[in-house]
Amino acid sequence: MVFTARSLFQALVVNTTIVACLFGAPLAFASSCSEADVEALGWLAKMSRSYREVAYQGVVTFQRGDDLQVMQIARSMEGGQSHELLTRLTGQGASVVRLGHPLNCTHPGQQLLLGELQQVPDCGLAKYYRFQVGEGDRIAGRQGVRVQIQPRDVYRFGYILELDRETGLLLRISTLGRGDKILERFQFADLHLGEPLSPQRDVQTVHPARHPHPDIPAGGPALSASWQVSWLPGGFTPTDAAAAASARRTYTDGLAVFSVFLEQLSRELQPGEGVAREGSTTSYTRGMRLAGQPVLVTVVGEVPVNTARMVADSVRMVH
Rank of each mutant, 00 (worst) to 15 (best):
Q200A: 07
L170W: 00
V133K: 11
A276F: 09
Q81D: 13
P271F: 03
E84R: 10
V203F: 08
V257D: 13
V120A: 14
T282F: 05
G292V: 00
L161C: 07
F29I: 03
E53F: 08
V2H: 14
G274Q: 15
I139G: 11
T4N: 05
L290S: 08
L269A: 02
L27I: 01
D240P: 01
L12Y: 05
S48E: 10
R286E: 01
T252G: 08
S31K: 15
P294V: 02
M47H: 14
D153N: 15
M71Q: 13
N306T: 12
G234T: 12
Q187S: 03
R156A: 12
K127P: 00
S246G: 06
Q72Y: 12
G287K: 05
G254T: 08
P304H: 05
A209Y: 09
A242D: 01
D190M: 14
S95R: 11
T87L: 12
H213A: 11
V19Y: 08
H211V: 14
H213Y: 07
Y251E: 00
Y155L: 05
S32H: 09
E39K: 05
Q111W: 09
P108G: 09
G301E: 10
R178M: 02
G158L: 05
V14S: 10
W231I: 07
D180T: 13
P212K: 01
E302F: 03
R165N: 04
A308N: 04
G93W: 04
F29V: 02
V13S: 06
R98C: 12
R98P: 06
M71R: 08
L86Q: 05
R165E: 03
A241E: 14
L89H: 06
M77L: 08
Q187W: 04
Q72T: 02
Q118I: 02
E268D: 13
S76Q: 12
S259K: 07
T205Q: 13
G65K: 05
S230F: 14
V59G: 00
Y56L: 03
A256T: 14
S226E: 13
V311E: 00
Q293N: 13
G141L: 02
L265K: 00
G79N: 08
P238Y: 05
V145P: 07
G234C: 01
W227Q: 04
L269W: 13
T237N: 08
I149M: 06
L183S: 02
G144E: 04
R249Y: 07
L163C: 00
T167D: 03
M310A: 04
D122P: 06
T298C: 10
P121A: 09
D137H: 08
E166T: 04
G177F: 14
F3S: 10
D215Q: 15
V2F: 15
H101E: 07
H192M: 13
T239D: 09
L99P: 09
G91W: 13
F131H: 06
V96L: 09
T106Y: 07
R249Q: 06
A45M: 15
R142Q: 00
R267K: 12
T167G: 01
Q69L: 12
G42N: 07
F29Y: 06
E135P: 04
E184R: 09
P214Q: 08
A243N: 14
